[in-house]
Design a protein around this nucleic acid. Structure first.
Length: 588
RNA sequence: GGCCCCGUAGUACAAUGGAUAGUAUAUAGGUUUCCGGAACCUGAGAUCUAGGUUCGAUUCCUAGCGGGGCUACCA
């Protein structure tokens, strides 16, 4: 929206100081100064050869004379503050009002991006760490879509390996044939129970080993349950039908459980990859890489890449027995995805403990000669800690995803009932509402934090519904919608009926920033900027609402304009919350 | 040890190199003739330390201190 103003400023900088295509950046004026947008003139002093305030004055005067976007200006030291004209605000609001979906770009099918997220192990239920991953993956996908990209959402499920064998072995030993159905336990929790059981056995065996003078590592290695699990893993690799059958059955239980959790969180995938299918991929590429001289084989048969010249280590890419590791699989899967799908970008949502892994992976793919290696992105997010420290699933301090979602819903119910605002809503709609509000609180609490930062999850604070929270924004939205409903039929209005008030101008400018915000959030893969924006918008509207009557405005035309403005604010609140995976109720 | 990330009010989070470092909680107070008070308004409270670059540094660079992660023929 500032394009014409920026080009006027550039034109004036040229005619005043002979600057060709000067960089012009406008920022919004700090609240304690008069004006709407600010140009910092320090960068132009070299060309103007004049004092900051003289330069600012000269530019201000020239721009005012040549642009009807601004109505006045003032100068404070090197800061040139413009006030936007009514004409500019009117044009801006007209554009917002007449756009199909303000802020969203139409999907450009030539911009294909694949987002991988979630990617759980199948031996235990999802926990709080997975929640951050899923919320980020879903939100970033929505943001990329809104920015105009075509998105494919995928996950790779770690369905094989030593972890699931531990659950399998424990179930075989102690399960006595019980199932999720027979016990009424959700499938993923059921399998997780046996993972815990295995670890109890292991702990006992280690204690026993240590008492015989073994080191902890030796004791763990020699523990009977561990050797049994290793044997089971080998049998799986060799395709042993009993083991495979057990494996399929237990994974199926887990998938059923996961599906319920995903649905509850509101996330979905266009395609699932399974590690049992992909773990052998990549070997062929390793062989080719050896021929190219990218990798080298050691005497024991293992294959490595030397990255010391790039400031990293030597990394293994194939074991000496010829089997794949994670890296091998990821090389193969990435190549496969670019062959199978017409994508030009691939984004991995994975925790920052794997920063090094992805650095190496991307470098290897570049060395193998794939041009798209520069279009691989790692959305690296920080861990979620509890107020008293790190979560540890083995110590039982992990926050279970299903429990957390359920308790948020209960908290929402309690608060809503206390406030007594849901009387008269049908019972079924109430259930949905509590869920929506609980989700809103949780999702906003997690997504408002910069993804790359380690965050503290405080259960008590996460169910707060006042202040900088999801329900605050949901409430603001619901209240606006309520007013609009009350308004009913409104008289027609034109700009000649309206004198835009300062707080209305602020709202228009806030709405104006939405498209750029989405583009920036997409570029940075960062939903937290959306959260901050929505909170500020809701707060700005509430301040306006406090001081100006909407339906009982001075004239019916002003009332109609304010309803129109409110409608656009509500639409952006709703649209922005959806980018965070949060619904906006009409009533709460 | 090596490599990477992070240090902002009591606590939790903001701040494309720009003005007097924002917001929420907690804390002290205020707003009932009014469309939804889950709201609004006011007060007090912070950039780990020492250098450097810059007209200007929470932001960039160096060193130190503190916290976390990675450093497996695990994923």
């Amino acid at each position: 929206m500032f394009n014409s103003l920026i080009s006027v400023i550039q034109g004036q900088l040229k005619s005043l100081y002979g600057m060709e295509k000067a960089a012009v950046e406008l920022s919004s004026t700090t609240k304690d100064f008069k004006g709407d947008v600010t140009l910092v003139v320090f960068p132009y002093l070299r060309a103007s050869k004049q004092a900051p305030h003289v330069t600012a004055e000269a530019v201000g005067q020239a721009v005012l004379a040549n642009s009807d976007d601004v109505s006045s200006y003032n100068v404070v030291k090197g800061f040139l503050n413009f006030s936007l004209s009514s004409a500019f605000l009117q044009r801006t609001f007209d554009v917002i009002q007449h756009s199909e979906q303000w802020g969203h770009q139409p999907t450009d099918n030539s911009r294909q991006n694949m987002v991988e997220f979630s990617s759980p192990n199948t031996n235990k239920p999802l926990h709080l760490g997975h929640i951050r991953n899923n919320l980020l993956g879903h939100s970033v996908s929505q943001i990329l879509k809104a920015s105009g990209q075509s998105i494919t959402q995928v996950q790779i499920i770690n369905d094989r390996g030593v972890h699931i064998c531990k659950s399998m072995w424990a179930w075989q030993q102690f399960g006595q044939g019980e199932t999720p159905e027979s016990t009424g336990i959700k499938g993923d929790h059921f399998v997780g129970k046996y993972y815990v059981r295995f670890n109890q056995e292991l702990k006992k065996a280690i204690a026993e080993g240590e008492s015989k003078g073994l080191t902890q590592a030796e004791a763990a290695e020699q523990a009977p349950c561990m050797t049994a699990v290793q044997a089971m893993l080998l049998a799986w690799e060799q395709g042993d039908s009993d083991v495979r059958q057990l494996w399929s059955m237990m994974n199926a239980w887990v998938y059923k459980g996961f599906e319920a959790t995903y649905q509850r969180m509101g996330v979905s995938f266009d395609r699932n990859y399974y590690e049992s299918d992909t773990y052998v991929l990549g070997k062929r590429h390793v062989e080719k890489g050896i021929e190219k001289g990218v990798f080298y084989r050691r005497d024991d048969g293992s294959v490595w890449i030397d990255l010391t010249a790039d400031g990293m280590d030597e990394k293994l890419v194939l074991r000496s027995d010829g089997t794949s590791i994670y890296m091998t699989q990821d090389i193969g899967t990435a190549i496969l995805r670019f062959i199978e799908h017409p994508i030009d970008n691939l984004t991995y949502v994975v925790g920052n403990e794997q920063d090094y892994h992805f650095k190496v992976l991307f470098l290897i793919l570049a060395k193998l000669g794939y041009a798209w290696a520069s279009n691989l992105h790692h959305l690296s997010y920080g861990m979620v800690n509890l107020p008293d420290g790190r979560m540890k699933s083995r110590e039982g301090t992990a926050v279970d995803a299903d429990d957390l979602l359920a308790s948020m819903e209960i908290a929402a119910k309690t608060i809503s009932e206390t406030l007594g605002k849901t009387d008269g809503i049908a019972e079924e709609a109430k259930q949905h509402l509590y869920r929506t509000l609980g989700d809103g609180a949780l999702k906003y609490f997690i997504l408002k934090v910069d993804p790359k930062k380690t965050m503290v999850f405080n259960p008590e604070q996460s169910i707060e519904f006042t202040g900088n929270t999801g329900p605050f924004i949901q409430y603001s939205h619901a209240r606006i919608r309520s007013i609009i409903r009350l308004g009913g039929d409104l008289s027609p209005w034109t700009w000649s009926d309206i004198e835009i008030q300062p707080s209305e101008a602020k709202l228009i400018m806030h709405l104006m920033a939405y498209p750029t915000l989405i583009q920036d959030a997409a570029k940075d893969l960062n939903p937290s900027s959306i959260a901050t924006y929505l909170y500020d918008l809701a707060k700005g509207f509430n301040a306006f609402y406090q001081n100006h009557s909407i339906l009982k405005a001075e004239t019916p035309q002003i009332a109609a304009f304010r309803v129109a403005l409110s409608t656009e604010v509500a639409a952006v609140l709703k649209s922005g919350l959806l980018l965070l995976g949060i619904e906006s109720p009409e009533q709460m």
